[in-house]
């Protein structure tokens, strides 16, 4: 009966739709990020968003519109540090994210605080999604998926062997830039919708789960997307039935999926030896 009552609530439908689309794009982008060792870029860019939102509020502009170009520029900054300064991805993300959060704190301090809770822009809730936000997540998903499909082979080649990709005539710097820019826009827009905890976990956990069991690059993408969507749908149901926080439930379910895949891989590897 409780399951049936679930479908009476519009906010549940909106959470299911927006959550599934968010999971889909995060899972697909996440595979490419994890394979390039940029898994933590979601977390890093979230910190930059904090700075961007603070600047927006300080300038009395819409914080998200100000944050988007700042976060996009920061994502390119991370890439530059990796390519030109020859830093590891995690170090580059650490530098940019700490500058982002320091900037946010400084501006908030100089402004003497804001009337709006700055954190509400970072920790959106999947159960309080508006119809406009559902539409945003659908449109964003379509744009991201079309770009990933069109540049599928370029992304494969660049992620697998960047040097060979260059000798194949692929502009790897542009492909890398495209990936981090898509990630930046995804992080800012979905963070407001589902919260930073969920966005950054959906960028990492479904891809690493898929990597445990996948048999090809294509199947890794598909498995990652299925894991992401399944965890969001199941998480919304479970949190509703057990009265638990939805975002955190989805993250834990994702982790359980990873554990199951890891155990399966360990057992099957053991049986083939």
């Amino acid at each position: 009966m409780e399951i049936l009552s679930f479908f009476q609530y519009g906010f549940m439908w909106r959470a299911l739709i927006a959550g599934s689309f968010t999971a889909l794009i995060c899972a697909v982008l996440g595979v490419l990020l994890v394979l390039r060792r940029l898994s933590l870029i979601g977390d890093g860019l979230a910190h930059v968003t904090f700075g961007g939102v603070a600047i927006g509020l300080f300038l009395k502009q819409h914080p998200v519109y100000v944050a988007i170009p700042i976060v996009m520029a920061s994502s390119l900054g991370i890439l530059r540090l990796v390519e030109k300064a020859r830093l590891y991805g995690d170090a580059a993300i650490g530098i940019v994210s700490s500058i982002g959060i320091a900037l946010g704190v400084l501006i908030a301090s100089v402004a003497g605080g804001f009337n709006i809770d700055i954190f509400s822009f970072l920790f959106g809730s999947i159960l309080s999604i508006s119809e406009a936000e559902v539409l945003t997540s659908i449109l964003l998903s379509i744009v991201v998926l079309v770009i990933v499909v069109v540049f599928y082979y370029e992304n494969f080649a660049t992620a697998f062997d960047e040097e060979f990709a260059k000798v194949s005539g692929i502009d790897t710097e542009r492909i890398n830039a495209l990936l981090v820019l898509l990630t930046a826009v995804t992080v800012v827009l979905t963070m407001k919708i589902v919260g930073i905890l969920l966005t950054s976990s959906l960028l990492v956990l479904p891809p690493v789960t898929a990597l445990q069991v996948a048999r090809s690059f294509r199947s890794t993408m598909a498995t990652s997307a299925i894991c992401g969507i399944a965890s969001v749908v199941a998480g919304i149901f479970v949190s509703f039935l057990m009265n638990l926080p939805t975002g955190a439930t989805i993250v834990i379910l994702n982790f359980l999926l990873f554990l199951a895949a890891f155990t399966y891989k360990s057992l099957t590897r053991g049986s083939t030896k």
Binding site: L35, Y153, E154, F156, A157, A159, F160, D161, E162, E163, F164, A165, V167, S168, G169, I170, A210, L211, A214, R215, S216, F217, R218, S219, T220
Partner: peptide, 25 residues
């Protein structure tokens, strides 16, 4: 390329996918 240092050994690509990537050029 020299040795096998330029690709991630845990990359989830099949032999056919890797060989096919030589056609991208």
């Amino acid at each position: 390329p020299q040795k096998l240092v330029h690709f991630n050994p845990h990359f989830p690509a099949t032999v056919r996918e890797v060989v096919s990537s030589g056609l991208f050029s």
